[in-house]
Design a protein around this nucleic acid. Sequence first.
DNA 1: CAGAAAAATTATTATATTCTAATAATTATA
DNA 2: TATAATTATTAGAATATAATAATTTTTCTG
Lengths: 89, 89
Amino acid sequence: METDRTTQADYLKALAHPTRIMILELLEREGRCVTNIGEKLNLKQSNISQHLGILRSRGILSLQREGGLSIYCIKDPSALKILKMVRKA
Amino acid sequence: METDRTTQADYLKALAHPTRIMILELLEREGRCVTNIGEKLNLKQSNISQHLGILRSRGILSLQREGGLSIYCIKDPSALKILKMVRKA
DNA sequence: CAGAAAAATTATTATATTCTAATAATTATA
DNA sequence: TATAATTATTAGAATATAATAATTTTTCTG
């Protein structure tokens, strides 16, 4: 049950960044590791890692370790639905 | 056609504030003037006015002047849909 | 175990947001 | 026209966010 507006705002804030939107679009099809995302988006490793951390801390992404890699996947599909609505808005 | 992620992020940013979420909930039923919103939310006039300006500049609210009052109404219903999804997320 | 690769964390700087207070602008009314 | 009421705007200080660089941690591999 999610009625606290601060929590709602924090969730929206997590989505409200161009890089994080691109990350979500990139992960829509398949999970990816940090380096791969960094290459696709042409951004620094630490920056990507920070954005991934933000999305994960809000429960939007999940992380699983595979070998030496950190694979991030979309955990919360409603984030994608919201982005879809924003595109039409 | 809305594909620019910066624009999408800006739209989400406009929604991503507790006060602005409350304003949208308040206006869901009916249009209201600045003073009325300020009383309901117990916030300063200038602060409310600024938040309303942000929502209006993104096309989420519309403004019509009635007598001495500025009546704000929801112009973009998809903002409400998005908030509804956030509550369930 | 040592070195390399991948990722996370930290510190720093720059920028953006937010709130408050003060002021300006607009409109209504006496 | 003067005053009051409503709203908008501006300036300032406080806080939050974001990007970079540097460092640390973790894990894999030789």
